[in-house]
């Protein structure tokens, strides 16, 4: 009986090993799942959160932000610095400085939710890397937007 079990163990063990080898061989001859970034791109999820960005007003092209500071107040990591001024002809303030310290941000999204002007959104910058951390310590979100203060 014992001898039978010994031999049966060897046979069943070998069969199970062969089954495992069949799986890996099938893997090997099937098509790889790799997306060859950066030559190809894998789809990003629709709700992907990159660093926040500032949206522009459709009419004027100025930043939507009126520097109320609620984002800076609610941010748990204190990564946002906002300053605004009133342009001469308007009632509302417009942001003149909007700095993000992305190295402290943990993408919780409280700033986006709390913004009364809906001025903030998540960007789709997914592959940031740099040689110095200072590039990301003060990211100027107003870059590229028009400003009413260009004299």
């Amino acid at each position: 009986m014992n001898g039978y079990r010994y031999l049966a163990g060897i046979v069943t063990g070998s069969v199970s090993l062969l089954k495992g080898m069949r799986v890996t061989f099938a893997n090997m001859v099937s098509r790889p799942h790799t997306v060859q970034w950066p030559r190809q791109t894998a789809p990003l999820p629709a709700r992907f959160r990159g660093h926040i960005r500032m949206l522009a007003d459709e009419e004027t092209g100025f930043p939507r932000c009126f520097a109320c500071g609620s984002c800076a107040r609610i941010c748990p990591s204190a990564c946002i610095t906002v300053q605004g001024r009133k342009p001469g002809d308007r009632k509302k303030k417009v942001a003149v400085r909007f700095l993000l310290d992305f190295t402290k941000c943990s993408l919780c999204g409280l700033c986006v939710e709390s913004c009364p002007a809906r001025a903030l959104a998540f960007s789709r910058d997914y592959a940031l890397a740099g040689y110095r951390d200072t590039e990301f310590r003060t990211m100027d979100l107003l870059e590229g937007l028009a400003s009413p203060f260009q004299f």
Binding site: W37, P38, Y126, A127, L128, A129, G130, Y131, R132
Partner: peptide, 18 residues
């Protein structure tokens, strides 16, 4: 440090970029 990869956490593409 030679290369920094910001993000929380960064995507794998960002590490490849690094």
């Amino acid at each position: 440090v030679d290369v920094v990869v910001p993000g929380c956490p960064p995507r794998p593409e960002a590490l490849i970029e690094a």
